[in-house]
């Protein structure tokens, strides 16, 4: 009877240990999946934050289009002049800052000879810069044809550097 009792206790102990191991494994699988999900959502949050920061740069006085109430608009005429002024290079603590026209399609780096029929304006262009972040914006400018009017196109602002992380 004593031996049988010991056997019973042993059986119960084995079952308990097996159950503990099983629950531990389930918990491990569950938390590993949850952690990987958290990691990817943290990365996407970081990316989205960077995009918002790029957008913030575009709403600064040096870029903003003040003719209409348009928080998403960049004054492309201002940007062209800004790209010619080297004194702004350290202003935003960025290694790279570019405004690119997406639609309508253009080719080449913009300067006074080919503007506005060009693709991009580089404001800051260091040789070594990290991964860049971009945000879609409206590129507005004065169009002199047909008596003149303000024309907005689709583009993006691309930036990289410390300024994006320190904001």
């Amino acid at each position: 009877m004593d031996k049988k009792g010991q056997m019973k206790i042993q059986q119960m102990a084995f079952v308990l240990v097996a159950m503990m191991v099983f629950f531990a494994m389930v918990a491990l699988v569950y938390f590993s999946i949850r952690m990987s999900g958290l990691e990817s959502s943290a990365v996407s949050l970081e990316e989205e934050k960077a995009k918002e920061l790029v957008k913030k740069i575009s709403s600064s006085a040096e870029f903003a289009f003040g003719v209409t109430d348009c928080p998403n608009c960049i004054d492309l005429d201002k940007v062209l002049i800004l790209s010619e002024r080297k004194s702004y290079e350290g202003f935003w603590q960025l290694d790279y800052l570019e405004v690119e026209r997406i639609y309508p399609y253009g080719e080449g780096i913009c300067d006074r000879t080919n503007y506005p029929d060009c693709k991009s304006i580089k404001i800051i262009d260091s040789e070594n810069y990290g991964s860049a972040v971009s945000a879609f914006v409206s590129l507005c400018r004065w169009e002199s044809s047909k008596d003149g009017y303000f024309k907005c196109e689709v583009g993006r602002i691309i930036a990289s550097g410390e300024g994006l992380r320190n904001e």
Binding site: N72, S138, V154
Partner: peptide, 24 residues
């Protein structure tokens, strides 16, 4: 966020259609 920004940019694009007079 990227898609929202893209939609916002599309809505601001100046089309080739003027309903009242050109160049409006």
């Amino acid at each position: 966020v990227e898609v929202t920004q893209f939609l916002e940019s599309i809505m601001g694009y100046t089309s080739s259609c003027a309903v009242s007079y050109e160049p409006a």
